[in-house]
Amino acid sequence: MDVIINGKTHQVQTEDDTPLLWVIRDELGMTGTKYGCGIAQCGACTVLIDGQATRSCVTPVGSVAGQAITTIEAVTDDAVGRRVVDAWVANQVPQCGYCQSGQVLAATALLKQNSKPNEQDIAAAMVNLCRCGTYNAIAAAVRQVAQG
């Protein structure tokens, strides 16, 4: 089937029910998208599907054929994504960094849909887990982009 990732169409040979995460990581060799829990609890595997933050570990690849998928590798191709990354660096958000691909994409999705999120909007959208506890820095970075 054809899978469109970061604007490029990939022909992939796998079963329809293979999680998108493992197609991205193992078939296509793009390792920025992370495996954390496999059951949509942590959000480390977050990608954008037609702009929506989506947990790729429970998304069958067959369900997203033809849709536009964005992974962390392409986040800086987008103007909002670039601002989010810059804010992440400015706020020194990452510690171990393992969850941050998913966090950056979750923030990018939020800010593309709502350029001026309030605290409740941020809390509702930024729900990925971070075992290093970078939550306050994440919220500060999102606020910084929102205040532009």
Binding site: T31, G32, T33, T71, I72, E73, V75, T76, V85, W88, V89, Q92, V93, P94, G97, Q100, S101, V104
Partner: peptide, 14 residues
């Protein structure tokens, strides 16, 4: 500034 902040914000950290 941390040396690894940008790589970890763009999925490049391995």
């Amino acid at each position: 500034a941390r040396l690894d902040a940008r790589d970890k914000s763009t999925g490049k950290a391995a």
